[in-house]
């Protein structure tokens, strides 16, 4: 790791101010992605600004139509939250599958979304549930937030403060682990809105990161059941291919995981 300067601000405003002063500053939340990257000397922030203990960034609150999870809330706290388990059990379940128990104690929803790893779990939930990402400057809809591999709509120095999830009529998540990294080789989150619209998002599969899957959405809108997907085919064009899975295999997993997510959603 290159030498850096560590800061622990106590408010979002202070964090943003510190970011502005640093030559090449980075926000540090749980550090479960940033620190491994820094250890490999693939990132060299002049300053790391630890936002994990800022009180206004921690907590889970019910909102009128759903729940709001503040950005520095850990995966463990989401997975075990009674509020989340009651409102959107699929989201609590998804959080319980991220990394491993030690990682879940430190990793945060805001850190995961800001990083937008193409195989991370949270982006699938945010996109499928039609969540809203709140920052210190604005609100960004899920459809506008994700911009491809490791890329988001966030500006330099903009910090995620919370994510608002609407409660949908149905929601389910199914993940197939990469056998080595345990990230999602493919994970699919399905949701049906109270109005009957269907949103399906897949992570781990596409070369462009998390994606909606229109062919599955259409089939499920017509018939919300795993069997409705038996005859559809997900195209393997644009799918990732590596030693862990071919493009065709990942395309198959998108379908199979979607079926299992629908079954889980009920």
């Amino acid at each position: 790791m290159y030498e850096t300067t560590y800061h622990r601000p106590s408010s979002v405003d202070e964090a943003v101010a510190l970011f502005g002063k640093g030559k090449e500053a980075k926000f540090l939340a749980g550090g479960q992605t940033l620190l491994p990257v820094m250890k490999q000397r693939l990132a060299a922030p002049s300053d790391v600004i630890d936002v994990a203990r800022i009180k206004e960034l921690i907590g889970i609150e019910p909102t009128g139509d759903g729940i709001m999870i503040k950005a520095a809330t850990t995966h463990y706290d989401v997975a075990t939250s009674g509020t989340v388990q009651k409102a959107i059990p699929a989201l609590a379940y998804l959080a319980s599958l991220i990394g491993d128990p030690a990682v879940r104690y430190r990793g945060t929803i805001g850190g995961s979304l800001a990083n937008n790893d193409p195989a991370a779990d949270y982006p699938a939930a945010v996109l499928a549930l039609g969540a809203t990402v709140k920052t210190n400057k604005r609100s960004i809809s899920a459809d506008d937030f994700f911009k491809g591999l490791f890329s988001t709509a966030l500006d330099d120095g903009e910090i995620i403060t919370a994510v608002s999830f609407p409660v949908q009529a149905k929601a389910g998540y199914s993940k197939f682990n990469n056998p080595a990294s345990r990230f999602a080789l493919t994970g699919v989150f399905v949701a049906r809105t109270p109005a009957g619209d269907v949103r399906v998002a897949a992570t781990g599969a596409s070369q462009n990161g998390v994606m909606r899957v229109p062919v599955i959405e259409a089939a499920l809108k017509a018939n919300w059941s795993a069997g409705a997907l038996d005859s559809i085919k997900v195209s393997d064009s644009g799918m990732l291919a590596d030693i862990h899975g071919s493009a065709a295999y990942r395309a198959n997993l998108v379908k199979v995981m979607a079926q299992r997510a629908v079954t889980a959603a009920g």
Binding site: P179, A180, S181, R182, D242, I243, H244
Partner: peptide
């Protein structure tokens, strides 16, 4: 080497 860390070289875990 494409498998130069535990991220890509699958070590047996307890649940395997």
């Amino acid at each position: 080497l494409l498998t130069a860390s535990f991220m890509d070289y699958a070590m047996p875990r307890a649940d395997d």
